[in-house]
Design a protein around this nucleic acid. Structure first.
Lengths: 142, 142
DNA sequence: AAATATTACTTAGTCGGCTAATTAATAGTG
DNA sequence: CACTATTAATTAGCCGACTAAGTAATATTT
């Protein structure tokens, strides 16, 4: 975690990459009325509509409380509908609206473009090595 | 950005690594009364005391507005003192308290431990390759 | 010297995260 | 059947991050 004269640590690089990526994501998603974070939710809804709050929270890897608020905001923005389940009235099921579906598609485009941009000039072999190493780091931290 | 059957994208790995690292950082810093983000500020103050709000914001790579609030919270927690400059009364200068100095040292320990943990089982050569590739990705995104 | 920038910081409001504590509905148990 | 978990969602409150708009002090310019 430093970058003066000494070589930047892996952590330093990772943090700044994530920050830069987040900034770009926010700007690009902003054109579609979205904030970074909401994109992932819409994507998983696109994969399977009508999921529960808790199931979505788990897939997106955030807390239920965070998910609830995110859903309410997206519902207020017309991206999503929230419907109480009749079998089990504790459960709310979330559905994509037409607008939400469009936004989900846009989000995937944004991801693809950023992945392309981020890994520009990196050979397939180097990328494969990178994926391997990053996979190990992820395991180490989880 | 997906991880089903297909290989996870570089972006997916980076995002989840950062998230996992952030969670660990928060837990470890919590033991010292800190939140992730504050550590970086304290570190830079440790390098040079009495810096201005804007200078700190630039070094930490966050907006001034964010820095102001962070400083005010750290001041409320007794980690830092905020003093109006007498030469130019627009400027506030930030100083580490004894408690802040201790916390800054703790933060550096946390970073080192996490860097060690994250890169465990990764050879020096692999790490060097990784740093190179990550450096290129960072450039691509900035 | 007075009007006009510019600079440094501040405030208000929005988001995504988190934890902890509540509420409401269902499932289980004595 | 009534009492007690457990589960699903919600609320409140705290962080870090952002933008946009505002204030106060210093510099510039006319």
């Amino acid at each position: 975690m430093k970058s003066n004269v000494e070589k930047p640590s892996v952590s330093y690089l990772l943090i700044h990459i994530c920050k830069a990526r987040m900034n770009r994501t926010n700007k690009m998603l902003g054109a579609h009325g979205l904030y970074a974070g909401q994109d992932v939710l819409l994507y998983f809804l696109g994969q399977e509509d009508g999921q529960t709050v808790s199931s979505l929270a788990e897939k997106v890897s955030i807390r239920q409380a965070t998910m609830v608020r995110m859903i309410d905001r997206l519902a207020a923005g017309g991206f999503v509908r929230k419907v109480k389940d009749n079998e089990d009235r504790r459960i709310s099921r979330i559905f994509l609206t037409k607008r939400g579906k469009t936004a989900a598609d846009a989000a995937v485009s944004v991801w693809k473009e950023l992945e392309r941009k981020a890994t520009a000039g990196i050979s397939p072999e180097e990328k494969e090595t990178l994926r391997g190493t990053l996979g190990n780091i992820l395991k180490n931290l989880q």
